[in-house]
Design a protein around this nucleic acid. Structure first.
Lengths: 231, 231
DNA sequence: CGTGTGTAAACTGTTAACAGTTTGCGTTTG
DNA sequence: CAAACGCAAACTGTTAACAGTTTACACACG
């Protein structure tokens, strides 16, 4: 039979398995999170449509989705703007990230597999090396993956979705808090403490370490803000 | 001067201060949360457009927003459906609500005004009466307001937004967990315990009470599920 | 020279029409 | 009689055009 399961992507129509809106939304989100379109900037529907070779309909739909996601703001008859996250809002976001990270650590302390702990430990080791080498970009990336896996292992999909949304929002605060060598070492020491509590099955400590790690992140962030223009 | 501030709603053009998309989105959200459109049901774009006297464009945009909000699911070429929340997902949502409620209670224990505590206490008293009278609808409403104010007083807008989103999602689980007289009394006793810890400024206890209140809600919810079709 | 005004271009909000897919039903066929 | 086929209606995805608002710029005026 030449039948293909309805969900399978046939080799013929490589497109059409998802709507243009979805593709536009993904591309716009990428542009925003990568900083290619900066907070406060306006997004011109027509330009986007022309650039992506679609009409304005899908673009408008995509923008509505991004609005609910908190990445853009729409002003009536005035267009949509990439959202600006104030320092106050960033602090709120840090608090929520801390709350959820603490939850995840507590969960892992209560129930985690040896494989999971080993994977996290390997990442901490890699960050240790990156910190020693002063490799900020490398550290940043592994750090992201570490928190991502941590949330995944915690086994609460809703928690992970919320955490991911918060991380995206964080990117909208102009200050991109860079990791100084000292900050990298400090941050990773906290990672190690989290993992240690998880290994020992110490739920309360794991939770506190997870929360404090993000609080530490907030402090490091505020230091950069206070330092003036930063970076 | 006849000038009107840009934000003020002039008496002439009562409409046009917000887009049709926004109005459609609000109406659809209302229909979904009120249960007039049930989880799993399909939403017909044309019918909605005709019913609200608009074209399909704004309707599609509104649906995209609701999709990101987790209220509907879009299947390509097949339309959008009101999302169905499984019991497992509902449990995850309860966990997150508990986490955030605990956070809010801790915050209020650390810093709250006498007015705020008095307002919350008044609500607990009103729920007490509703519980005694077996007034489920009344209890439900005050309970909603109680948690709403609690989150507002906590002073973290992001936390409140997340909590509100979670409550909306809760409504998508078929089982509408009703408050039996016994459940109402139990639930309100937990409210009182939360408030008591807040009054005493006992941060840790307040947090634990807040979390356990939602855990209690989850248990009451699961009891209804286990009881079969429920009501 | 600065300020206010009017006009035109640009852009958003909305609608209607077109294209392709899914779905339901009646018919045919083994 | 059950299953498969085919056609038609319904619906979604997309596009293009229209209407109204905002914005920018040039010009007149004090």
């Amino acid at each position: 039979m030449l039948d293909t399961p309805p969900g399978s992507a046939g080799p013929i129509d490589i497109v059409r398995t998802q709507s243009l809106t979805t593709l536009v939304q993904r591309e716009l989100e990428r542009l925003i999170l990568a900083g290619e379109v900066k907070p406060g900037e306006r997004i011109n529907e027509q330009h986007v449509a022309q650039r992506l070779q679609v009409s304005r309909g899908p673009v408008r739909e995509a923008l509505r989705g991004l609005e609910r996601a908190g990445l853009v703001e729409a002003r009536v008859n005035r267009g949509v703007y990439v959202r600006e996250v104030s320092v106050e809002q960033a602090v709120e976001i840090y608090e929520m990230r801390g709350l959820i990270t603490g939850f995840a650590c507590a969960r892992l302390a209560a129930a985690s597999t040896a494989d999971q702990r080993a994977e996290l430990a390997a990442m901490v080791a890699r960050m240790e090396r990156a910190a020693a080498d002063g490799d900020q970009a490398g550290y940043y990336e592994i750090n992201l993956a570490f928190h991502d896996r941590l949330m995944q292992f915690a086994g609460n999909a809703r928690a992970k979705a919320m955490y991911d949304a918060l991380v995206k929002e964080s990117h909208l605060c102009r200050r991109r808090s860079l990791f100084s060598p000292r900050n990298m070492a400090e941050s990773n020491a906290e990672h190690a403490a989290m993992l240690d509590a998880i290994r020992r099955g110490d739920v309360d400590t794991a939770r506190r370490m997870g929360e404090e790690h993000i609080v530490g992140g907030r402090r490091r962030f505020l230091d950069v803000v206070a330092a003036g223009t930063g970076s």
